[in-house]
Simulated scan of single mutants.
Amino acid sequence: MYVAVKGGERAIDNAHAWLAEERRGDVSVAELSVAQIREQLALAVNRVMAEGSLYDPDLAALAIKQSRGDLIEAIFLIRAYRTTLPRFGYSEPVETGRMACDRRVSATFKDAPGGQVLGPTFDYTHRLLDFALEAEGLVEEAATGAPREAETPHVTAFLNAEGLIQEEHVPEDDRPRDLTREPLELPAGRPLRLQALTRGDEGFVLGMAYSTQRGYGRNHPFVGELRIGTVPVEMEVPELGFSVEIGEVVLTECETVNQFTGSKSEPPQFTRGYGLVFGQTERKAISMALVDRALRWEELGEDNVGAPAQNEEFVLYHSDNIQATGFLEHIKLPHYVDFQSELELVRKLRREAMVGEKREAAE
């Protein structure tokens, strides 16, 4: 039960004003623009779009500015705004094989068909502070060409040609439920699990993925392919009777290849884990693929070894940082009545205990 605090409205208004002042910071320093955040903090923008389930770099940058860099608060703002938007329809499934790749690597084949494209990555950088960035000078442009426009086939397709990797079957009901419009229900099918993971907190999903690598889930993956690039988005227009391209989005896709010795229902073969996330979000996509594979234990006829990453309820219900934040931070709100009742209970128990001790001493 919550009770009103006298003068609370004025205190809240003052808190808002103070927050705005703290957000602005030293007025002698130039204010950070939304465009600067969008262009120079792109990885933070990508995370907010992915976990906020809304692809709009400008709005994500605005949310980061408004939240003073608190990405979970920014994700909350984006999700709240998303609920106000009208839904005109659903786009067609994107064809990632048509992706114009900025980056495309495989840890399974050195000479992967289509080639390895390192792209912009921290993988080969030294983890040393670059104090030259303090100079705020112009950065020399990299000697790179434009993203490839030709279709780049998936590496797993070449394994599949030999029948070495499990076939992916489209369920009879090929339109998955929409987690942004319907509450999560368990047991969840794989499409719904993937939706939850792509919206899940990056740190949580990373921790779950790391646990599988350390033996909690018997999951030893290879990155079959990691690709980042732009894909066209199409939507069917009923008045036209065919699909038209309505825009483009940048995606990160990861397919892991996992050894599988077979079960009563499946022959020895490689199996897949899958991750797909807005923007350049490599760590999240790889983590998502590892957790996806761990959660597939039942359909593959594997044993459940009791690993956290194999527990669908544990993973899906605790990966959503907005739900977790709301439940955690509500304890900051007034609980005066609740606490007073518990305080009286503890006092009563202490009095009864003291009476009992005196009675025992007298006997």
Rank of each mutant, 00 (worst) to 15 (best):
V3D: 10
G8R: 13
I12T: 14
D13T: 09
A20W: 06
E22R: 11
R23T: 01
E39Y: 02
A61S: 01
K65G: 08
Q66L: 09
G69P: 07
G69K: 03
P86V: 03
A100W: 14
R103P: 08
D111V: 11
A112W: 08
Q116W: 07
L118M: 13
Y124K: 13
Y124L: 15
Y124A: 12
T125A: 15
D130N: 15
F131R: 13
A132C: 10
E141A: 14
G145V: 07
E151M: 10
T152F: 10
T152A: 09
T156G: 08
E168N: 09
P191E: 14
Q195K: 05
R199D: 10
F204P: 12
V205C: 10
S211Y: 12
I228N: 14
I228A: 07
P232D: 15
V237N: 09
I246E: 03
E248H: 15
T252P: 00
E253W: 06
N258L: 15
F260Y: 15
S265H: 13
P268D: 02
F270S: 02
Y274A: 02
L276P: 00
L276H: 02
G279N: 00
T281Y: 00
A285Q: 00
S287V: 03
M288F: 04
E299T: 01
N304C: 08
E313P: 00
F314V: 08
Y317H: 08
S319R: 04
I322L: 03
I322A: 02
A324T: 12
L328T: 15
E329A: 09
S341H: 08
L345C: 01
L349M: 05
A353F: 07
G356E: 07
K358C: 05
